[in-house]
Design a binder for these strands. Structure first.
Lengths: 229, 229
DNA sequence: TTTTATATTTCGCTTTATCGTAAAATGACG
DNA sequence: CGTCATTTTACGATAAAGCGAAATATAAAA
């Protein structure tokens, strides 16, 4: 119950995964967790039991789990670590946005809170990481972004790309080659039906770019009113 | 035999410890390792067996162990990591020389070679860490310092402090308060017999400082010829 | 409501890595 | 050659996490 018990690598990974699932679907099903972490469902059940006995989450058997306040704080702490680390590696050590994920993934379990705060200070306490994800504060608060998939920006409408997944280096390199970095503004030129590709015109570019549905669906965007900043 | 098998935290710690013992005494006895790592001798025997089966060290039963080339490279790699990390934390993240050890100790097991090299570059490829220890190159070469304990600098002779242990924060703070940082030059004013304290006059200081025998024995020094740089 | 399908949990077991105690083996030395 | 300290072997314990098979619960279909 006391929150000082130090967590293992796996438990930290579980908490992060559960947080992200909760964020998207309100709760986290066993199989969803198993899926994300690439672990067999019975193993997840076992871990859920241990985590709920430690007071990190509430378990409604056969329904799913919810993080407790303690669990959520722990998850947000990991997210902060990950995102500060990515920001630092890119900002101070010349990493590129497509190769920071793995390094951050390992380091987030090893660094001290002190080091993270020093990195944050060195960066000027950034609020977003290089992939556009909001960085939780040291007190465990996060901005909740209201994003829509690029696939839901209507034809003819202007939008802005705000957030991409940091996981797949190849995808990130490809996105960069299209000019699709967080902050990029565009107008949807055409959208094919039946989950077909979309055509975009990025601000400051002379040519349209074509983006497949699967890819576009993973891009967190906001619609931009004309003349909005 | 293939050197690509990734090592665990403990094995890395064993290799470091064995390297340091070898450096000082030519070989590493089981009990000495047990002592340094605070582990029971039979456990060390067990680990020695595993390490020698992995080709990291040669074991002469009942005699001691010697690192193989592979083992030595692995140990030097850890030393490089540790020392680059300490240098980086102090040089770029405003740590002090008395509080970097633990952080480096944890991180050295988690960082990638790539990150270490980036840190080294950011620092201008330093050759010594902030405690005066030589940093092995990425190729596994180290400068072998020929140091003597401060207790062996004769009375009346000038010396230079070159290296101190990074392990004990309190000791480091105390040393700093005396002005005893690597590079500091001094003249031995008096030395009491029977392992008594010594009196030093540090360059640029108006007052003598008294240093106990136990402490002085851990300070790596070089005698300095008059007018030497 | 009964049947069927899907998801979840329980059970029992395995793996990996490490450490420990007690007892046997070895080597060093007087 | 016998004593003593060191080292090794044998055996067991622990902790953390994983898996497959079978039992159970929920949800959907008939």
């Amino acid at each position: 119950m006391v929150d000082s018990k130090k967590l293992t690598r796996s438990t930290e990974d579980y908490l992060k995964a559960i947080y992200k699932l909760e964020e998207r679907h309100g709760a986290a099903q066993t199989s969803a967790i198993a899926d994300v972490l690439d672990i067999a469902p019975p193993s997840v059940s076992g871990m859920i039991k241990r985590l709920s006995e430690s007071g990190l989450l509430e378990h409604a058997p056969y329904k799913g789990v919810q993080l407790t306040d303690v669990g959520r704080r722990a998850a947000l702490r990991m997210l902060r670590r990950h995102r500060i680390l990515e920001s630092y590696l890119i900002g101070q050590l010349d990493y590129d946005w497509d190769n920071v994920h793995d390094e951050a993934e390992r380091l987030e379990h090893a660094v001290s809170d002190d080091l993270i705060e020093r990195m944050a200070v060195a960066l000027g306490n950034p609020r977003y990481d290089p992939h556009g994800a909001p960085i939780p504060t040291a007190f465990g608060e996060v901005e909740k972004l209201q994003l829509i998939p690029m696939t839901e920006v209507p034809s003819g409408v202007r939008g802005q790309l705000l957030m991409v997944s940091d996981q797949d280096p190849e995808r990130l390199r490809f996105l960069a080659s299209l000019g699709l970095k967080p902050g990029a503004r565009f107008r949807v030129v055409t959208r094919q039906p039946f989950n077909g590709p979309m055509t975009l015109r990025l601000d400051g570019r002379a040519k349209d770019e074509i983006v497949g549905f699967e890819l576009a669906r993973t891009l967190g965007c906001a619609a931009v009113a004309q003349g909005d900043d």
